[in-house]
Amino acid sequence: MIRRYAVALGAMLALAPQVASNALAQTADYSEDYLSSDYAGSDYSGDYAAADYTLPSEGRVVLGHGRLTTNDLIGDGNDRWQTGSVISSRVVGRGGWIGALPDRPFDILEYRLGGQVMAPDDMRNPSVGDRPWAGALSFGVHTHFMRGPVEVAMGGDLVVTGKQNGLSAFQTAVHDLIGVQPASKSVLDNQVSNGVHPTLVLEAGNTMALGSGGVLRPFAEARAGAETLVRAGADLTFGSVGQGELMVRDPVTGQRYRAVSNPLAGFSYVMGGDLSYVNDSVYLPASSGVDMKNTRSRLRAGLHWQGERNAAFYGLTWMSKEFEAQDSGQLVGSMRVDIKF
């Protein structure tokens, strides 16, 4: 039975088709009304700051969905360290999406579900000082709004660690299914222990148009909980995909994925990077013998494509060492495929 679930979930993550429902079409209409508005084809920077977001009297409606699947097998081809993650978002708001954020918190809410697996380099017989196996399942609520020219995202997640979340059993079933040797019993018995870790997240960014279709967005982020850190970086975008959309940051790679979409056909090329100072991490406990590094860096690039009905994204992220015994950084790949029938 577990193997059947593994096959089903693997297929869903690789080609998660989206079927547009009538309800979603009514609540997040990007048809001719949007394309003829002032937001269509405009730059990011003026849209958010100048928008007049009027709240109608009706309740919340679904504005969009987003997701991103990350794995090192579609990056450097290895199966170690930050080995795989999935993030999924469902966005609701008061009234339809008008291509800009509101100026009040909680008018837009993002319900977020995530899963993350971290493993030693050798999952059968790890070296001394390598990271312990760790699985994290998270459930969160976040809000997105403007404060003057600054885009703010804030919220919280409950992060569940240890065997209780079922991720170690799931990874073992997937490895058995595809003929890859799973983690040994001793590695899984010594995984990061059971726990529930409330985690607060705050990000502030400022989008600036550069001309020739380029957009620069410097940002700062703080996290407190499962990992406590501060981070600063920037993202650069060239192209039409993403204009007038709500983009959400993947916590593992920093790649930004589309959570509320504006289906203007075209491409966008993205790149970015950030630096972090990490105070502590439940995934790298000193009691396991691992020596955590306090600084981390990430460099990323990717390509968004939007067709008339279908869309796709593929990106690569280089991540620096997270602990002293890690002999190098790693390269992970991220992807999303949207197919509408």
Rank of each mutant, 00 (worst) to 15 (best):
V91I: 15
A25L: 13
A325P: 03
V241Y: 14
V252I: 15
E151N: 05
G148R: 08
D72R: 09
V7E: 03
D274A: 08
L68D: 02
G46S: 09
V230E: 00
G315M: 02
L55N: 10
A173F: 14
G205R: 09
F170H: 05
D157S: 11
Q82V: 13
R60P: 00
A49W: 03
D43K: 15
A234Q: 02
Q116F: 15
G156Q: 05
R3I: 14
L316Q: 12
Q191N: 02
V192A: 01
V278H: 03
H304Q: 09
L264N: 10
M271F: 09
M271C: 08
A6P: 04
A224H: 10
S89M: 04
M335P: 04
R4H: 12
D189H: 00
E324W: 07
V215E: 04
T295S: 04
G195S: 11
G148E: 02
S328P: 05
G99F: 13
R258G: 03
G140R: 08
G244S: 07
G315P: 10
D274I: 03
L73M: 12
I108T: 13
G162K: 12
T199N: 06
K321P: 07
H142K: 11
S193Q: 12
L275E: 00
Q18G: 12
G77L: 04
E151R: 13
G99N: 07
S184N: 01
E151D: 00
V160D: 00
A16H: 10
G233A: 06
Q82K: 13
W81Y: 15
K321F: 09
I2E: 01
P102F: 08
F313S: 00
Y30S: 06
A153M: 11
S88N: 07
R249M: 06
G329P: 11
R131D: 05
G135E: 01
I108M: 09
G84R: 02
G96Q: 08
H304Y: 14
P198M: 09
S288Q: 05
L13E: 01
S85W: 10
D121M: 12
S88V: 14
A224I: 15
V141E: 00
T54I: 12
A286F: 00
D33Y: 14
G179N: 06
G289A: 03
F219D: 02
E58M: 13
M154R: 05
I339S: 02
L158E: 00
P126Y: 15
A173Q: 11
D33H: 13
A6F: 14
Y34W: 11
F313N: 00
V337L: 04
E151L: 11
R124N: 11
Q82M: 12
R90C: 05
Q191F: 05
S184K: 09
L73F: 13
F106C: 06
S57C: 04
G315H: 09
M247P: 01
F313V: 03
L15K: 02
E32F: 10
D176P: 00
V62E: 01
R298L: 09
Q26V: 12
V92M: 02
F323C: 04
V160K: 03
H65A: 14
V230L: 10
T27V: 06
G155I: 15
S21P: 01
Q326F: 06
D250L: 06
G155D: 01
G77W: 01
P182N: 09
R104A: 11
